[in-house]
Design a protein around this nucleic acid. Structure first.
Lengths: 233, 233
DNA sequence: CGTGATTTAAAAGTCATACTTTTGTGGCCT
DNA sequence: AGGCCACAAAAGTATGACTTTTAAATCACG
């Protein structure tokens, strides 16, 4: 299933990106475009375009007379959605989930505070709806349905913050929540305390109580971090 | 000075990226590779490689039989360093500085808290040194020297947090601080209160007092936000 | 012997062209 | 009106020739 029929470029990009982020090539390794073209059985044209993209993600660096050098992980643009996906699909998924969760714990409380100041009535209503949806699906092993509401909830908060940088983290949060549900030993039902907190965040936002919305979201974040420590100590 | 002799690819990428992020092409505009090749007087090969990179930044989308469509700003990967640079160089620099500052205000306090737990002795020493440097240069219109210490200080905190996502924001913070110093109406001397706060953060980190480091950094962040409101209300 | 200039060749960068594939559009038929 | 089909436009891919940069080997000289 690794070979979706989406064009040669996509295929080669996916293969190489996955391999590099998985650490298949130690930093400093040198690739040659000719060799890659041969290996993937595509033209040099395709390889070059792929390399240019990987270069823009700081996964590799291309230099004349030298070749394409794999960069150390500290260089990688870890905010690139593609890179995030590759890393989540690879071996250090746990490490990646952890650092993303820490990022969430920093960003989401502030976003919630801003959302309380700026959310439109429609967004408030949406938020309440999702929170209620979480309540409704929080029992009886309905994790999938719960996840949908959870993701939607956090996305709305980030959007409503009115900050574009926050809003763009919606996908990241979705990945983290999905990963948590699917790939970790998950409790059969979500933590009831967390569910309640979501409802109260929705209320605080509707009440324009920024401080409370921030405080409550920080509690949710602490819970998420603790969960990580419990499940992968 | 817009045409650095760094290769055709770089030149075209820079031109197009800058133009798109500046809003020169309204979202939905369609470009054709042939036309671009002609306009920049380069081969279609070069244009295609550029398009692929812009596509990976979600600035454009390329579809057969249609052409290259400019994406709306909400799609852009605003965490890409290149995109950040382009936007900072363009017309909505103020808006960009604002959203980056909000991001900082969310991330840096948490990073400082983590740094207090994890900073190595060397990092603690470095931090103190930079804080003292800030004190030393905070008077007498030595803004440039002050800036260097300021940037270094925040970089160390982000690095010492031990979170890769935080660490990668070092460049962003550097951009914001530099932009604040160079492109805004700057007070002749930095705010003495801010300088003191930096010193105390360094002390808190050295003392392993995470809560205090976080609290103090939050104060710095509040100051930065207020400064924005004062200078560009 | 070491050191600096010079040559060499390896690899990426660029270009032109020919061909393939996808897909929006317009016309035709019912 | 609705659906089918043929057409053409634009991106995607392949190939081969050529240019430019530059690491490294070679050579000349003190």
């Amino acid at each position: 299933m690794t070979t979706r029929a989406r064009g040669l470029h996509t295929h080669v990009l996916e293969s190489l990106g996955l391999a590099i982020t998985a650490g298949a090539y130690p930093p400093g390794s040198v690739l040659r475009t000719d060799e890659l073209a041969q290996r993937f059985d595509v033209s040099r044209t395709v390889v070059r375009e792929v390399i240019r993209v990987l270069e823009s993600m700081y996964l590799v660096e291309s230099r004349r007379r030298v070749g394409v050098t794999v960069q150390p992980a500290e260089q990688w643009n870890v905010y690139d959605p593609q890179v995030i996906r590759w890393r989540l699909a690879g071996a250090d998924r746990p490490r990646q989930l952890r650092s993303l969760t820490v990022l969430r714990s920093a960003v989401e409380p502030v976003a919630a505070g801003l959302a309380a100041l700026r959310a439109t009535p429609a967004q408030c209503a949406d938020l309440t709806e999702q929170a209620l949806g979480m309540v409704a699906t929080s029992r009886g092993r309905r994790l999938e349905a719960y996840l949908v509401h959870d993701v939607a909830f956090h996305r709305i908060v980030l959007d409503a913050s009115g900050n574009e940088m926050f809003a763009r983290l919606g996908d990241v949060v979705a990945e983290v929540l999905t990963g948590r549900t699917h790939h970790q030993v998950m409790f059969p039902d979500p933590d009831p305390a967390a569910v309640t907190l979501h409802v109260r965040v929705a209320e605080a936002v509707r009440a324009r109580d920024a401080a409370e919305a921030e405080r409550l979201t920080r509690e949710i974040a602490v819970g998420a971090l603790q969960e990580l420590d419990v499940l992968a100590p």
